[in-house]
Amino acid sequence: MQKERAFSEEEEDKLQSALGVTADDLELIIQTLEFILQQAAYHAAKPQVLSQQLMQIDLQDEKVQPIVEAWSSNAKDIVSQLRQRTIHPKQLEEVKWRLNLQMAQSTRLKMKVPNAMFELSVHDDNSGGREKIRVEFTHEELYGFYNQLETIQKQLDSLS
């Protein structure tokens, strides 16, 4: 299901000798199994339907069963993982904050003004790095931000 290969070279060597197949055959077996699972995931196939269709393409019964078992026991994880897959290169990854009480500044002594600093870490898929967005909020500004997040939350709530 990933872009990477399912097995390492070493594992492939072992599989090859255990199964008694050539490297090309092993490659074909892995790709075929991957394809079957991808298709099952794409259509969110019911195990029964998958089993039926695999038999229709004349796959031996003893091979159909393990595939269907593998699918039915992992389907939930696989699909939920695929649901999270996104195309946007930048993703919010972490939120850090710090609450301060400003006591003084060069032009004013004896202050008591709270402020909140936020650091939003955004993962950038293109560069592979992390970008940090740092913003500071006064009480009023933070309240405004909170209200906007509440509006978004309401939209999300209305979806379910």
């Binding site: 919010l92 933070l142 978004i152």
Partner: peptide
């Protein structure tokens, strides 16, 4: 940037928490 729903909950929780603390 994109905010996955799980991260959005984190963000919203943190902002609400800091606001309360403030």
């Amino acid at each position: 940037f994109e905010v996955p729903v799980s991260q959005f909950h984190q963000l919203r929780y943190n902002v609400a928490y800091v606001l309360k603390q403030m």
